[in-house]
Design a protein around this nucleic acid. Structure first.
Length: 562
RNA sequence: UGUCCGAUGGUGUAAUGGUAACACAGCUGUUUUUGGUGCAGCCGUUCAAGGUUCGAGUCCUUGUCGGACAACCA
């Protein structure tokens, strides 16, 4: 308790928290209201997790509120499937939204405000092509060219806008533009487009509309309608902020509380591609098996990989928050899941690459039940029984014929502890005609049952094992990074990122597992002693147990001998 | 040669004019029936130059480097 208080006090405030506390102190806001506003055009990824934890974290820290809002202003890209997955992901991360909203809820209001802007002479219908409009905006360095329609009569714009809405005009034939400033050095202020014609059914409004608002016209107003106090978004929207404020100035009455947009740097991870476009391409191109493929940096992929909500929250907290570009080492994400899983995952024994061991002085046909601790980090996890017999499997890498002094595991003439079993000493190495090691003959010390010798002698190594008689088989899927390049910005924008893909990102093997693991349920996390954290894949069944490797255990011996 | 934003160890994030801190990574040592975990220690004078000040990572000036912006995407 005391410890918690200390960490709470010493926790430094990021720049957004500082702004919020100032707004609270000055009385500008009594209650803080944030929102998480994804467009349902793809699955959420770890970068979104950072934004989710930020927004909902503020809600928790300041006893405020947070909405989940779907920014569904473009019916050509949005799908129901994506909405479902987004809701699932946010809930799975452990957050409750106060309201579930949709930008499309505000289409009527947005339309009325647009009419108001036209009447005020602040918006007009432009009948030029996209190319022409774009050309007239010129470059940031030189002034823009006004549209010939810019100063058309209000009545004309009003009439055309209504006709646009009613479907009289074709897509691309005209747009509604805000009359801001064609000479602004900020391109977004050069008469931005507010509405375009899209004759597509919308997921929620169906065929009601033939015109849809653009992001810039819809977002700030949505925030305003919902009473959002702090609208947090990523850095690339920084240049949109003057426009965000411009629209709010048109619709909000003076003195009325309006949302403030604050930008922060998005998350980048080494060896990880995050752009929705590229992730979509991985899925549609068949490079992965779906959005929730365990190699994907999506929240659903990480979930399937065995990452816990707590690990993602811990990660989000540790990546920090600032306005500078950053690239976080994926190692931090892996550390976060180990940190979480170390406390909660039960330990089991499983042999990935089996080597048969025969204990020559152990009675034939005898099976003993040995007691194993489920989690040394958590006594309440209890104990389990593990069958032991004359023939066992150990990990191939736990034996070395010509072992260096620093090798603490099994080698000819050396004694090791079989965890929760006995001390054994390697007497003979059996090989096939090609010289491959096929079997080890060992002797055991009957006095060392459970792993301690009454004479107090020490062994350096403790290895894991599975009794051959009782072993079950399981499919193990070992995942490696999908991209071989460290810096995600090195992955080209086009579709030709094939060269950067790691072709060995998935390895499937069969392992021998202790019987207790055969009853594991989908989604459960285990630490396979001495190897890594594994999670039961939803593909599992009673006949075929499938484990995904979440993350390997740190292994200083392997690292030194690489 | 436009506007805006940024620059602190290998990677991130703090320090709100007063001893540069925390985490991850790395390295040492130690504990351990997981070469895991835990514990202890080591590893940076803050992009550059000038200025203000008793005192500057912080304020000012200039420069350098990096990023964003010219979709009827969000």
């Amino acid at each position: 308790m005391k410890e918690n208080q200390e960490t709470e006090e010493s926790k430094s405030k990021n720049f957004i928290e500082q702004i919020i506390e100032e707004d609270l102190a000055s009385g500008k806001h009594k209650e803080i209201y944030t929102r998480f506003p994804p467009e349902p055009n793809g699955y959420l990824h770890i970068g979104h997790a950072k934004a989710i934890c930020l927004n909902f974290g503020i809600k928790a820290d300041y006893h405020g509120k947070t909405n989940l809002r779907f920014d569904d202003t473009n019916p050509t890209k949005e799908e129901e499937e994506y909405m479902d997955s987004i809701k699932q992901d946010v809930a799975w991360l452990g957050f409750d939204w106060d309201r579930l909203c949709f930008a499309s809820d505000y289409f009527d209001q947005l339309y009325d405000w647009a009419v108001m802007l036209i009447k005020d002479g602040k918006a007009y219908i432009d009948e030029q092509s996209g190319d022409e409009i774009s050309k007239q905006r010129t470059t940031p360095r030189e002034p823009g060219i006004e549209s010939p329609f810019r100063n058309r009569p209000v009545e004309e714009s009003l009439k055309l806008f209504e006709e646009m809405k009613d479907g009289v005009h074709d897509e691309g034939s005209m747009v509604l533009r805000a009359k801001v400033d064609m000479n602004s050095p900020n391109m977004h202020m050069r008469d931005p487009i507010m509405y375009r014609i899209l004759k597509r059914p919308h997921l929620r409004t169906g065929d009601k509309w033939n015109v849809y608002p653009n992001y810039d016209y819809a977002h700030g107003q949505s925030d305003f309608i919902e009473g959002i106090t702090h609208s947090l978004c990523t850095l690339e929207f920084e240049v949109h902020r003057p426009l965000y404020d411009w629209f709010l100035n048109q619709i909000a009455k003076s003195g009325e509380s309006r949302p403030r947009q604050i930008e922060f740097a998005r998350l980048n991870l080494t060896y990880t591609v995050m752009s929705k476009r590229k992730l979509l391409e991985l899925v549609t191109g068949g490079y992965v098996k779906g959005w929730d493929d365990p190699r994907m940096p999506t929240i659903s992929g990480l979930r399937r990989r065995g990452y816990t909500p707590g690990s993602l929250r811990l990660f989000s907290e540790r990546v920090g928050l600032a306005k500078r570009e950053n690239t976080i080492d994926v190692g931090l994400l892996e550390w976060a899941v180990r940190e979480d899983l170390n406390k909660i995952a039960e330990r089991r024994m499983a042999v990935m690459d089996p080597l048969k061991v025969v204990i020559t002085n152990y009675p034939e046909g005898q099976i003993e039940e040995m007691e194993g601790v489920n989690n040394p980090e958590d006594e309440s996890a209890g104990k389990r029984m593990i069958p032991f017999g004359r023939e066992l499997y150990i990990e191939h890498s736990d034996f070395m014929e010509d072992a260096p002094r620093k090798f603490f595991r099994l080698a000819p003439g050396r004694e090791v502890r079989l965890r929760y079993g006995y001390f054994i000493t390697c007497q003979d190495v059996i090989k096939d005609e090609d010289g491959n090691i096929t079997e080890l003959h060992c002797t055991y010390d009957p006095e060392s049952r459970g792993g301690n010798s009454p004479d107090g002698r020490k062994v350096k190594g403790t290895i894991h094992w599975v009794a051959k008689e009782a072993a079950k088989a399981a499919e193990i899927r070992v995942y490696d990074r999908l991209f071989s390049v460290e810096n995600p910005s090195d992955v080209p924008e086009g579709g030709d990122f094939k060269d950067n893909l790691n072709n060995e990102s998935l390895t499937v093997t069969t392992a021998f597992i202790e019987p207790a693991l055969a009853e594991a349920n989908a989604g459960e996390n285990y630490q396979f002693e001495r190897t890594g954290y594994f999670c039961v894949d939803p593909d599992s069944s009673a006949e075929k147990i499938v484990f995904n490797r979440t993350v390997p255990l740190r292994d200083s011996w392997a690292k030194k001998n690489k």
